[in-house]
Amino acid sequence: MSSSMMIGQYIPAGSFIHKLDPRTKIAIIFFFVVIVFFANSVMSYGLLTLFAVGSAFATKIRVRYILKGLKPVWFLIAFTFLLHLFVTREGEVIATVFGWELYREALIQGSTISLRFFLLIMVTSLLTLTTTPIEITDAIEQLLGPFKRFRFPAHELALMMSISLRFIPTLMQETEKISKAQASRGVDFRTGSFKDRIKAVIPLLVPLFVSAFKRAEELAMAMEARGYKGGEGRTKLRELHIGWKDYVVYGLFILLMAGLFLTRN
């Protein structure tokens, strides 16, 4: 039973951020990542934080889910901060603990860099939380579309992504099935030395690959039978739509940029 399987971190909540065109979300994040590096005053950082936190609230997703998504990077953020405290030796000493001196600049740099880091991760995770993988795929195909003239395989890339998304649950079910079959033949996946466990993976991986190749072959044949001949001359059912909500968001973002440049030192 894999009914709980979730790909990516998408959490449906129906907020207006969920309903934005995925291209808008990707574009905004792209520019946000750029302007984060222009912030250099308390006020400018304040503005960016306000934007990120505001967006997070606007998704209507519970804070605990958002923080859960950031779990793997807390350590990195903390590490960056501590590293700065120990390595940076500029400005005046503001405290001395057991002979170790804390510099003013160390504190400032440590905080700003971890804050930047936090903002970047948070905003990008908002994308995956509010956008289904297939929407992201569509957006990527569209955004990379112009590069087709340089022979960039935008359509193929998107198709590959969407087929992978389609088959992840199937292959997970298959993995479960094969591992049960091999466990019944006496394979122990859970205990034993490292070497034993590596060995135990082979009876799982070989059948998985064999089956994946067979699936790929059959799928290719089925796609061909249904008239697939590449992206040329193909129409699309899925359409992306830039609406008034997107314009509002672009407007807000321009205001943010203006605010940022006004509050810089």
Binding site: S162, R215, A222, R234
Partner: peptide
């Protein structure tokens, strides 16, 4: 054509996308 294995001919991520797949290939209007 409809083939034997139900999984290995389902191309779309949803039912709607799958039904559309053939029509998209033949360039039908939306």
């Amino acid at each position: 054509m409809v083939f034997q294995n139900p999984d290995n001919q389902f191309v779309g991520t949803t039912v709607r996308d799958d039904v559309a797949f053939g029509m998209e290939n033949h360039g039908m209007p939306r």
